[in-house]
Design a protein around this nucleic acid. Structure first.
Lengths: 141, 141
DNA sequence: AATATAAATGCAAATGATTTGCAAAAAGGA
DNA sequence: TCCTTTTTGCAAATCATTTGCATTTATATT
């Protein structure tokens, strides 16, 4: 997602594209590896030494609510964040070695029979599908 | 998994099937809803009021390493545990209202074309599929 | 440009989940 | 019974995340 588009998305809801937000986004945009809040904090700190942890958290949370950022629970206890780089809904394969993620087009939700959910008396709003494993770089090692 | 089988698994590694472990397992076996450590603690406490939180955590962790229990990260910040019914692999729908989960039989991984993963140079080891929404109880409110 | 208003930040402290060190208790085996 | 190892309870520590509050900043308005 381009910075302009992101700024529009923010402004639409009355939010501003601040220096801090710009820096957080720059980190997330700089590579396809999802980062923890701690990692984002450390990296932003290099350019903006006064940044505070709560600013990182508040903004990652806000931007994930706005759909600018994807928040994922790759493992227990820590959330990982990455730029939501695609317009279309998609899922990921995630390398357990280096943490790199790649998008896949296949969406299981399109396959699922709504009757099955109805039977459970359940109305769905979101879903998550992730495949874990090793990229060929990490497999080689 | 039967208690006998579990006891064998534990003994093989030099662990014992203690009263506390028995109670934890009883909770997890009593229904198919994954429980948080807190929930397990509360429920075990009813039968064994002296139980300690660290005992719960240590054992859930141990048993999940031994494959007796499945540890899942349904949402950020809390792990959920359930007995590993290794016979049938399954996924869940998760109610955002009350947190209740229900098993679904559909597994998207069976649908996915391995060529697609090969194209990405990726070898898969695990996957996760979860549907979020509201159960009819919570929908009614 | 000065003022008003809402949003955003930094700071410090609080919270919630999970982990750890340690001494005492329980379980086997020799 | 004695010895060794595992397990437990307890208290304190740790780690990730959130919150309240006073101050600063951005933007719109006069």
């Amino acid at each position: 997602m381009s910075l302009e588009k992101i700024e529009v998305l923010l402004r639409e809801k009355g939010y501003k594209l601040t220096e801090q937000r710009r820096l957080i986004l720059a980190i997330l945009q700089s590579n396809s590896v999802p980062h923890t809040a701690q990692e984002v904090y450390d990296l932003v700190k290099l350019a903006y030494s006064n940044i505070n942890f709560s600013t990182i958290y508040r903004n990652l949370e806000l931007m994930s609510e706005l759909g600018i950022v994807d928040k994922m629970n790759l493992k227990s206890g820590v959330s990982h964040f990455e730029i939501n780089d695609r317009e279309e809904h998609h899922h990921h394969v995630i390398c357990k070695g280096c943490g790199e993620t790649k998008a896949i087009d296949f969406c299981p939700y399109k396959m699922i029979n709504n009757e099955e959910l109805d039977k459970l008396g359940f109305s769905a709003t979101e879903h998550k599908f992730e495949i874990y494993g090793f990229c060929n770089k990490c497999n080689a090692k």
